[in-house]
């Protein structure tokens, strides 16, 4: 379990992180979303004991990061957003080195390395030099490295950044597998929408503050002030446009003649939306379909971070 209380990081008068409070339960996957410079990597660096917080505290499996950072390092597997590899070191030697760094003996390492390479689909690259691997392979190898001491908490800072679509899919599959293994995963990514299906909850950070936190669905509901509604009609569109324009919760009504559809923005609860549909039917509009546009996490992300740079 990860508990964060009042975590603050200040550089001069600039707050990189402002009193962050967060709890991530065991076995859950938490997605951290925010624009560049919002405070994601700062949070991760503090949790990985690489950066000293200005104030606040965090506990990893009940162990304080300020009181016992050495033990915290044993509890977590950390993957930074940018990392390098050693030249002239082979893939299995790379993992062997980090295994030894966590105090695993030679026999344990020998047994573990093939399994980890298989998990990240790099068994065929066992004898290859690490610096010659592709970016996607290096990312997967770094993930295998983060798993070498079998931590139950993984802190992954943008694990899919800079990867091509295929490599992203591969990374996502591995993360799903890790989730199934019961790992607690804290992940930040710009491709969070792609990971929405595997995230149990997400946190949205902006200018060092957590502005939303909860399940993917609840965040969508909370942050989306307006829904896009499409109404397909069998009759003339002009009547429908007039009808919907009269509702105070409706804005921006457009008619799309080629699709026989009226589209508008709606600001209201589900109950109010239901009432609107009933009234429309009662008024004689020949409605073939009444649907809410599916917005994914990407849209939500864009919506809530659009003011971040302002």
């Amino acid at each position: 379990m990860i508990e964060i209380k009042g975590l603050t990081k200040k550089y001069g008068s600039f707050y990189a992180l402002k009193g962050l409070d967060l709890t991530i339960e065991d076995g859950t996957v938490f997605g951290f979303v925010g624009a560049n410079g919002a405070g994601k990597s700062t949070t991760f660096s503090i949790l990985a004991t690489l950066l000293q917080p200005t104030a606040g505290e965090a506990w990893i499996n009940g162990i304080s990061i300020s009181q016992n950072p050495q033990e915290v390092r044993r509890q977590i597997g950390y993957m930074p957003d940018f990392f390098g590899v050693y030249d002239q070191l082979k893939t299995e030697e790379y993992l062997d080195f980090y295994g030894a760094s966590y105090g695993l003996d030679a026999k344990q390492r020998e047994a573990l390395i093939p399994k980890l390479l298989e998990l990240v689909n790099l068994s065929h690259k066992r004898q290859d030099y690490v610096d010659l691997l592709s970016r996607g392979m290096k990312q997967r190898l770094c993930l295998a490295r983060a798993l070498i001491h079998d931590p139950n908490i993984l802190i992954l800072d943008e694990p899919a950044s800079g990867l091509d679509p295929r490599a992203r899919v591969e990374m996502r599959e591995i993360l799903k597998e890790l989730k199934a293994m019961g790992k607690t995963i804290l992940i930040s990514s710009h491709i969070l929408p792609e990971l929405a299906e595997m995230c149990d909850s997400i946190g949205v950070i902006d200018s060092g503050e957590l502005i939303a936190h909860g399940s993917v669905q609840s965040i969508q509901e909370k942050l989306q002030s307006e829904k896009v509604i499409h109404v397909k009609l069998a009759g003339p569109l002009a009547d429908a446009v007039t009808f919907f324009e009269n509702d105070p919760r409706v804005t921006q009504v457009d008619s799309i003649t080629e699709r026989q559809t009226v589209q508008f923005l709606y600001k209201g609860t589900d109950e109010e939306q239901l009432a609107l549909l009933r009234e429309a039917m009662a008024s004689g509009l020949r409605i073939l379909a009444f649907s809410e546009e599916e917005t994914d996490l990407e849209d939500v992300f864009m919506e809530i971070t659009k003011g971040a740079g302002a």
């Binding site: 950390y78 990392f83 390098g84 590899v85 050693y86 966590y102």
Partner: peptide, 14 residues
């Protein structure tokens, strides 16, 4: 400079 230090520092080595 090679960005390998952060990973090394998060290992259990003293």
């Amino acid at each position: 400079e090679k960005q390998t230090l952060n990973i090394l520092l998060t290992t259990a080595q003293s």
